[in-house]
């Protein structure tokens, strides 16, 4: 027996797979966006709004859930391509699973959204190979979430504060939330919006277009 010093992160095989997927997506000119949030934060409703508003772009959605295909059915009814991924009880998507799901989309597309498993913890720990990480926090969940689940806020490029149409009914302080999030991540973009009324969708969609252009030209 010999001793081999490694000093490798446990998930380093995943990091390698993630970099490989990013290379594939870049060569195809499609931007993979990893959407992370709690269950019920409005991921599918947000995506429905984006798909409706950005009809000039080819959008596909990878729906990751532990069970069922309700979200994929909803997305396909809007005319976007959707693939349902079952994680088999796993609480997050990793780069290997994401690569498989990407392969299942046979058409070319501009933006591919990965709707990660509804969970604020593990999805932040695994690089999926996405070019952008976007987190959704709904008004109904409370403005204290950055204090409880810091890692996800640290890893995200943008935070969507969803369901702002419900602000009158909940004690959610957008300024306080923004301040807490900025302490964790100085570069994060924050978009308060309501996918239901359409308020605030435009700045978010413009940002997506900007990022897509950057991804295609970089």
């Amino acid at each position: 027996m010999k001793i081999i010093k490694l000093g490798l992160g446990v998930t380093s095989s995943n990091d390698r797979d993630a970099d490989a997927l990013r290379d594939i997506m870049r060569s195809k000119g499609s931007l993979l966006i990893n959407l992370m949030s709690s269950p019920g934060s409005g991921k599918t409703t947000l995506l429905s709004g984006v798909i409706n508003d950005m009809r000039d772009l080819r959008i596909a959605v990878l729906e990751a859930d532990i069970e069922s295909d309700v979200d994929a059915v909803k997305i396909e009814s809007l005319g976007a391509k959707a693939v349902q991924v079952h994680t088999g009880g796993m609480c997050h998507m990793d780069a290997g699973m994401t690569t498989e799901a990407v392969r299942a989309i046979d058409e070319e597309c501009d933006i591919m959204f990965l709707e990660n498993v509804g969970n604020l913890i593990c999805p932040a720990e695994y690089d999926t190979g996405a070019g952008l990480n976007v987190m959704i926090l709904s008004v109904t969940e409370g403005d204290d979430k950055p204090l409880k689940y810091p890692l996800m806020f640290e890893k995200s490029d943008a935070l969507v504060i969803s369901k702002t149409d419900a602000l009158d009914y909940f004690d959610f302080d957008i300024d306080k939330c923004t301040e807490r999030v900025r302490k964790l991540n100085g570069n994060i973009r924050i978009f308060p919006l309501s996918a239901k009324t359409g308020n605030g969708m435009k700045p978010f969609e413009n940002w997506l277009r900007e990022k897509l252009d950057e991804w295609k030209t970089k």
Binding site: I4, L8, T11, S12, C91, D94, Y126
Partner: peptide
Amino acid sequence: MHEMGIVIHLAKTLDQTAEEEKLKAIGK
């Protein structure tokens, strides 16, 4: 099953190491 996910990645990482270093068996 958070731990199981990490275990799967650990096994994959070690499998790759074994291949690169031509190892037959890993102990500790």
